[in-house]
């Protein structure tokens, strides 16, 4: 059904409508990204500190560090699932890339942590740093979207 002549916009009104559309798009999604950004940053803290703790210890402390990290990761996923209801455009594609980057970095980090036996300080610190860097970069990228 086409718009009637009586409500057809003038060039000036059309420009206002275009500006309004852009402003509404920004305001509607302004708050949408923050639960995801907070999740990504917290996930980076949890996994990098967890990797550091696991890599610097052996025996029961290693498992305590692993359990604590897993508990925090579950809390973070639950919070994101419950509170992140709105999703910005392109979310699925971007988060598939973030997930891939994190998984690749974590696979290396957990290998260092598991094989370190509390001795490979440099490798563990570097892999924990890489996890922090990757998750911070992803959160930064998401915040600028």
């Amino acid at each position: 059904m086409p718009a009637t002549d009586s409500n057809a916009p003038s060039p000036e009104e059309a420009r206002e409508l275009l500006a309004r559309a852009e402003s509404l798009g920004s305001s509607a999604t302004a708050a949408a990204g923050w639960p995801h950004i907070a999740f990504m940053l917290s996930f980076g803290v949890s996994t990098s500190m967890g990797t550091l703790a696991m890599g610097l210890t052996t025996g029961p402390p290693y498992f305590i560090a692993m359990m604590a990290m897993m508990a925090w990761n579950i809390i973070l996923v639950v919070f994101m699932t419950v509170f992140a209801a709105s999703i910005k455009k392109g979310f699925t594609k971007r988060w598939a890339i973030y997930g891939g980057l994190w998984t690749a970095t974590y696979a290396v980090a957990i290998l260092f942590a598991a094989l370190s036996q509390g001795e490979n300080l440099l490798g563990v610190c570097l892999s924990a740093g890489a996890l922090a860097a990757v998750t911070t970069a992803c959160a930064w990228h998401e915040a600028r979207k």
Partner: peptide
Amino acid sequence: AGLAAAQELDFKDL
């Protein structure tokens, strides 16, 4: 306009 900028919007946010 709001939905075009999002993949999905919660009713309350919209």
